[in-house]
Design a protein around this nucleic acid. Structure first.
Lengths: 104, 104
DNA sequence: ACGACAGATAAGCATGTACTTATGTGATTC
DNA sequence: GAATCACATAAGTACATGCTTATCTGTCGT
């Protein structure tokens, strides 16, 4: 089950921090490390989890590996969330505004 | 951090199943149990986790406790997701359709 | 070809988590 | 008011998870 890996991946605060940083722009694993207090193997392991969850994708560039946000994972969360749209109250307005933004 | 509790709560497949069932309509803890193979204490513990994450809320009714989906938690996920709207590709179309649904 | 570098993988360990059984707490029924 | 019911809590246990240190793989510069 794909949702399982996604939510499991995001359940860890360090992993969310990595994802958030990656969302500011693609970068390699070393660049990701500074600012976050984490060892090289730990980072590598976290990236592997995020990648297998479809939240992040990699691209080899010589001896560097460039990581970037994979929209696939985000889309799956949105799909999951959409199943419960019946429970959305007034916040729908906010979402509509957001949608308009995306549309331009 | 609230996001932490939410994602942690949803990381467990049993808990997602409970939430999903609850999304079909509020019900008490015993009613939630049938169909899902789970002991009474386990259910109680899962509900406590979902509740403290803001995904579910309870209402005492005599000796029963009625549970229902709490929109608060869902809204927080949506907010989290919105931070990454820059990464949404063509799926925006799908979301727009969804939005139209919600709007009617 | 060799050393340095970016990153992945392996193995071990400490802590977290989801379950179990047992028991506690209120509300209901007789 | 005693038994029963719905649910919560406690304590223990097996397994998952995130870290560590050590090592491996592959690429680059010289």
């Amino acid at each position: 089950m794909v949702e399982n890996e996604i939510f499991r991946a995001l359940a860890d605060p360090t992993r969310r921090a990595i994802f958030e940083k990656l969302a500011t722009g693609g970068m390699n694993a070393s660049a990701l490390r500074d600012g976050i207090d984490i060892s090289q193997p730990a980072m590598s392991q976290h990236l592997a989890v995020l990648r297998s969850a479809g939240l992040v994708r990699e691209e080899r560039q010589g001896r560097f590996v460039n990581y970037e946000v994979d929209p696939e994972g985000l889309a799956l969360i949105a799909q999951w969330l959409a199943k419960y749209r019946a429970y959305w109250p007034a916040r729908i307005e906010a979402l509509k505004v957001l949608l308009k933004d995306m549309d331009q």
